[in-house]
Amino acid sequence: MALLEVHNVHAYYGNIHALKGISLTVQEGEIVSLIGGNGAGKTTTLRAISGLLPPRAGYITLQGEDLRRYKAHQLVSKGVAMVPEGRGVFARLTVEENLEMGAYHRSDRTGIAADMKRVYQLFPRLEERRRQLAGTMSGGEQQMLAMGRALMSRPSLLLLDEPSMGLAPVLVEAIFQTIKEINKAGTTILLVEQNAHMALQTAHRGYVLQTGEIVLEDSAHNLQQNPVVQKAYLGID
């Protein structure tokens, strides 16, 4: 049984049909990447999975359990954590307070402290800036904070929306390295990226979205070799 299964999901923004029957699966321990152009429905798929935009048709299961029964805020304790696009750190809270918010639904103090330590090991930069307001940090540091905050909820599935957006190339490299590390430590990751090159290098498998539909599905390696993908998303003629 797959960790996450998305079955023929349709989602709308008002009258706009944004997802036209998306189906995908994520196995335990995988990194799966969704790639595609602007408006393809990548972010919408993540919003549907995390409950922020409930689907009108189709269903989503996590470890076999139907997620339609849960509201967005309840999904956190089910093990789904999301790092939103544009990072969405609480700008007026300090780094440490942001991380504490990530563990909002938990009450085991020792576990939280241990996870906090783990996040600081993963991102030493955050420990240096513990008392700083999140809004005053650089884009890369905010991305680290958003990821660290998501990890604080001990997710079984981590949803990452455009982690490379607006970052310097050297930082992009580092962020994807960290994504691999997080995955190796046992967290399953569903990744949405415009930077198809980096995404496919990091992921095990990938889906290509176009105007709300999945047009291609393959292992990351095969997708990298696929001439259509190369032409449309990797800039190789």
Binding site: A81, G88, M101
Partner: peptide, 9 residues
Amino acid sequence: DVAEAMGIH
């Protein structure tokens, strides 16, 4: 949105 995604009702 983020608050909700953190588990806040």
